[in-house]
Amino acid sequence: MRFFRAAYAVAWKDVLLELRRKETFTAMFFFSLLVLLMFNFTLSLDRTQVLSLAPGLLWLAITFTGVLGLGKGFLAERENECMDGLILSPVPRGAIFLGKLAGNFLFIFAVEAVTLPLFVVLFNLDVWGRIGLLLFVVILGTAGLSLLGTLLSAMTVQVRAREVMFPLLILPLVIPVLIGAVQATAGVMRGDGWAEYAHWIRLLVAFDVVFSVASFWGFSFLLED
């Protein structure tokens, strides 16, 4: 119980900070809009192409936006010299990780909640009837992205050239999430039966489970001094 209260406190601190400053959300939201605009200018898509490319474009937008936001995961602590406070606080490392993870997930999901409908409208997709399923896939993919992002940003925030190092480390590692999420999204958008993409959902769940364990464990080594 104490564990979850500590995690909640860490997450709430981030949410409150974000509610007052609105920096991360604004930056991520406009960045995701810009990515959608860039797709429109660089790829001139017709109706049939849109359907086959939309899942990939959606996940590229989510990944780039997520990487932009996640890289700043521990920046507030760093800039205000609060890393030591966080490390010295008498709570398990796992609780700090869970709190930061929850905060990161919420920020990305908040952006997605606005960008996803815009994406569907801008690319004329007919998925309103299956929006619940689509959200489920988006949540699973975002969880994988946030897990790796929280672990790696705790590391890169303490490194020189973190703007370079964070994408370099996270992008190769999220490939399985991208493959699973894109294929499942494509299945949902085409209106396939559940059985036809259930294995991609399973891949996403398996990745989330494996990396929950690996990230919790790895994180305990990152805040030692």
Partner: peptide, 13 residues
């Protein structure tokens, strides 16, 4: 320490 964590996570992936 950091490198070891990256190596382990990477090789699991």
């Amino acid at each position: 320490r950091f490198a070891a964590v990256v190596a382990i996570v990477g090789m699991i992936d």
